[in-house]
Amino acid sequence: MSADGVMQQPDVTHWRKSERDRLIKERLALSVNTRKQNSDRIAELLDLAIGDVSGRVVSGYWPFRGEPDLREWLERLESRGSRCALPVVVKARAPLVFRVWRSGDKLERGVLDIPVPAAGEEVCPDVVIAPLVGYDRGGYRLGYGGGFFDRTLAAMRKRPLIIGVGYSQSEIQTIYPELHDIPMDKIVTEIGIVTRSAG
């Protein structure tokens, strides 16, 4: 850290890795029942955060390492006039693609063995739900460090509604955002909806 208290690049990288490890460990320490209750509450609040989903494409995710499990909520979107998509890593350091997914569609193992649609129409989502490891009140999301979501959002022609989801215990004072970090419009946890603060 410099004399004026500003964290330098190597410090940010080291700090983020340390925070990421700590937050994931705390998340995995939650009981299965607590994670289920939190996930159900997050799903309820997502309905409020998004509003009417009819005619919109909503990109979700397949839960990984204790993330909120929103699969039941995603499966209900079709009955409400929406289409669900899942993000797919096509190659390193490239934007994600989003493939339409319905319950029962064939899945294959993607990066980190996370299931992704084996086939399906590629779409541009109207709403992107991004799982987070940590977050701050500025709407910035601490992810896994691969930069896929930031890279993808920066490349999209039309900015979707971007909602980060995670547990309230994952809030930190700041993630020390860098120029490539793109803030979420809203962050939904089991205790409420955080709207990005100005500045």
Rank of each mutant, 00 (worst) to 15 (best):
G60A: 05
F98N: 06
W73D: 06
M184K: 10
V58P: 06
K186S: 03
E190V: 03
E190G: 10
L74M: 15
D150A: 07
G146E: 12
W101G: 01
H180A: 04
L161H: 13
T152C: 13
E44A: 13
I114K: 14
L112Q: 06
I172E: 05
R76P: 02
G60M: 00
P160W: 13
I182H: 03
S54A: 15
L23T: 04
G147K: 09
G143D: 14
I162T: 12
A3M: 11
R141W: 11
V12H: 02
Q169C: 03
S79F: 03
S168Q: 12
W101D: 00
L179R: 07
G145N: 13
P68E: 07
D11G: 13
V97W: 06
V111R: 09
I162P: 04
I114S: 08
D105I: 03
I114E: 00
R76G: 15
I187Q: 01
S197E: 14
Q8K: 11
L77F: 04
I162H: 05
V89A: 09
K91H: 13
V53Y: 04
G164C: 08
D21C: 02
V194H: 14
G51I: 06
I24K: 11
R16T: 05
L86T: 01
I193V: 15
E171S: 02
D126F: 09
L74H: 02
L23K: 08
D136I: 14
H180N: 03
P177S: 07
T152S: 15
D52A: 12
L45M: 12
L107A: 04
L70C: 12
A130M: 15
L77D: 03
P115E: 10
P160A: 05
R35F: 07
V133S: 10
G166W: 10
M7D: 02
